[in-house]
Amino acid sequence: MMDSRKNPMDDLQRSKGDASSSLGRKEPDSHESDESLLNRVAEKDQKAMTSLFDRYGGLVYSVAMRVLRDSKGAEDLLQDVFFQLWRNPKSFLPSRGSLGAWLLVVTRNRAIDVLRRRRPMDSVDDYPISSGENIASKVEQGAMMQKVRTVLTSLPPEQRNAVELAYFEGLSQTEISERTGDPLGTVKTRIRLALISLRKALQA
């Protein structure tokens, strides 16, 4: 999805498309790499931290809003995610993938925890996030969001629904099965097919 040479989140950040323009404010040092900014954050450089906040704040806030559907909760989560990064920039390991992808995963998982008022079950964000090479190389700047949306809207409604219930609503497979009335095996198949479609479309 995202290769190690180029960070698609950076592409999105730099893009001029309408969708990506809300990802964050433009900052004069937007060319500075995430790694370099994180190194400065480790030295308590507030300006570097602000740059990262401006670069990814919109993305984090938007995901939190989508899951929580509550601006106050989303704002609090935004603060928590970035404050954790400020306090402990080493919590992100470059070997786990890109910073943008990691922030997305952390935000989504924490938002689900808030939504379900549960303690985190497994720290799945501790696992590395693969950076599929061809997505970063083929998807043009700013087009990725639109592309993902197009893929999702083109999915059969039941596949899309199954994925969204799991990813954005935080339902377990059993809960999805109960909610939709579909057998567990069907739920799994739909999620698998949706992800296959997503991967194929992004690699096309």
Partner: peptide, 12 residues
């Protein structure tokens, strides 16, 4: 997990 990450990009 990488594939799923892009789902986060689909949000408004």
């Amino acid at each position: 997990a990488g594939d799923l990450t892009v789902l986060g990009l689909s949000v408004e």
